[in-house]
Nucleic acid binder design. Structure first.
Lengths: 347, 347
DNA sequence: TTGAAAGCGCTACCAA
DNA sequence: TTGGTAGCGCTTTCAA
């Protein structure tokens, strides 16, 4: 590894030599003050009054050198950071969630946190937690499953003052935003029951990484129909036209009068295939999707869907901030998934 | 700001007191060795041979304390990091791109880089660049526009050994993965010309943040039809059913025989509205989308589309690694957007 | 084979 | 109002 030597304090010759990264000491030297003064000026330290001319000299020197403070050195010295870390979702997750993340980032940066999505690929469970902990974040927001009590402990022991999970279940020691996907399935199930349907299929994606959501959604349907005598059939489906056509071809044998799909995309895929098979919707089979995507309004009949409401980013940001300020408070658990049925023409 | 006092080295009493974050010194103390030895063992330093019993003691002590190294301290000492920083896109961008990012993260972590998406919201241009520079990343990958030569300079002066832009145009001093969206429009335009269409509309999203892509796509259509006597009309469209219906109602007046939409979503939205108005597709008006989404196969007629091929994550990861290893090499410029027409039934 | 110590860049305490 | 300086956690050179 080649180390770039520090530029000595003597000014370099005429040619613009590739200088090394300027530090606050360089700024101090150029401004003719001490490093302490530079720090006071650039951080607007209120406990210390610096004369106006000095301030100006420091600012000018900093600008001239293109000085940018070194976050690592700063947080090392401070003993803590304002870094909020989220693992980046490994699979491309929906629009809804992307929007939520954006909102959250915005709200957190309003509170002066730095938000970073950590590209964790190939690391699982506690290894991932250790990798995150190396950055000494002040808070960690973990979507989905995959973080256990051990991981929470690792993070807390490394100084994280708040660990928040966003997923289907609580984790010991962490705050939880309970995304109760069962309620999504329950909502669809109740609707179908009310519409008099008795033999309900539930489309479950075959794609990896979605079980954490698809399983509870299926379970919710089961619960809604429990004790009514209605049957619930899981229908694994890959997100391809061929798979949908195959499933549709099998429809008479299945004898279902309703189907709830994991989300609108799978619903539309199947609905298209069913129409191509001559299945009448909603007469022969009712179809309900989820997530209320624009997509569901394009194909006819318009798709009934479960509208899912995520919490506002503001809300989560405030929870994080509270937790950071009082790390010893009891972990909070919030149910945050609103599910409501949007009835259109397919059910 | 409340500082957590360091736990003194005397063992705490019975109750599990909230200890402070363990450091390598704590590990050394518990293992009865020096901090240097701890470092050697935990980093598998090959230049130094440590006896097996010592190794074991160190590892056990580290595990017992739940020791996690402090990335900031490490990179401060080392003088450089393995951090690759990407600003997180402010607007939810398509599936295609999300997949690309994932692949890239995977490829980079194979090369032992840590990839982080920085939630830049509200910061623009050079301010954003400064914020990124504070983390002293070894490389910065910037999608879209918004980074100027100034920003590149800031990053390089702060030690970034590679700056790569992924966008419509080169930026002085940075490597460029040229996403030539004009070629997407050009592809659609050529196709429509070949199909004998002469009055071409181009749907341009009204939503913010998409101009960087929509403008070149429009321009590409213009170029493809230049000199053929065909007309090109920009059609601003918001992503709502109402807006689409309004545009469709205006269709007779516009007198267009073809339309290229920014992407498949807008194309489908408009195609649905056109069908509802009784416009025959493709007889009266040909419709072409872009991005080749599943969506385009669900509504009939199946949507013709421009299939866009992004480079592999592997490819970009290798470019980054090369640039990091040889930061003084000439900035490379690569055209990386493959555009090919997928003809289905709507054109 | 192991240890002592310097020093990365920064801030905050204390002294001048 | 300003400067000197200790020390955050870590790695690495040099010495033992």
């Amino acid at each position: 590894m080649v180390e770039i030597p520090n530029t000595p304090s003597v000014p370099s010759s005429a040619a613009p030599v590739p200088r090394s990264v300027p530090t606050s000491a360089d700024v101090a030297r150029l401004a003719g003050v001490s490093r302490a003064t530079v720090s006071y000026v650039l951080n607007n330290t209120s406990a210390v009054r610096i004369s106006e001319p000095t301030r100006r000299r420091v600012h000018e020197a900093a600008k001239e050198l293109g000085y940018v403070p070194h976050a690592a050195a700063r947080s090392l010295r401070a003993g803590h950071s304002r870094l909020v870390l989220m693992p980046a979702p490994a699979i491309p997750v929906g629009l809804l969630y992307a929007r939520f993340i954006n909102e959250l980032q915005w709200a957190l940066s309003r509170l002066d946190y730095t938000v970073v999505q950590y590209g964790t690929v190939g690391l699982r469970g506690d290894d991932a937690a250790r990798a995150w902990a190396e950055l000494r974040p002040v808070a960690v927001l973990v979507p989905g499953t995959g973080l256990g009590p051990q991981g929470v402990a690792v993070l807390k022991r490394s100084g994280a003052r708040a660990v928040v999970t966003l997923g289907p279940e609580r984790v010991e020691g962490a705050h939880a935003l309970l995304m109760d996907h069962e309620s999504v399935g329950h909502c669809a199930g109740s609707h179908l029951r009310a519409r008099g349907r008795r033999r309900v299929g539930v489309v479950v994606p075959e794609e990896d990484g979605l079980e954490a959501y698809s399983r509870p959604r299926l379970e919710g349907v089961r619960q809604a129909l429990h004790g009514t005598g209605a049957t619930v059939t899981a229908l694994p489906l890959a997100h391809t036209e061929q798979a949908a056509a195959r499933l549709a071809a099998d429809w008479p044998r299945l004898g279902l009068d309703a189907v709830f799909a994991y989300n609108d995309e799978y619903a539309m895929l199947l609905m298209r295939a069913l129409k191509d098979e001559g299945v009448r919707i909603p007469e022969d089979t009712a179809v309900v999707g989820a997530d209320d995507l624009m997509l569901g309004r394009l194909l006819r009949p318009r798709l009934s869907t479960v509208h899912v409401e995520l919490p506002s980013g503001q809300y989560l940001a405030e929870l994080v901030d509270r937790a950071v300020r009082d790390p010893h408070a009891e972990p909070e658990t919030h149910k945050v998934l609103g599910a409501s049925l949007v009835r259109r023409d397919s059910s």
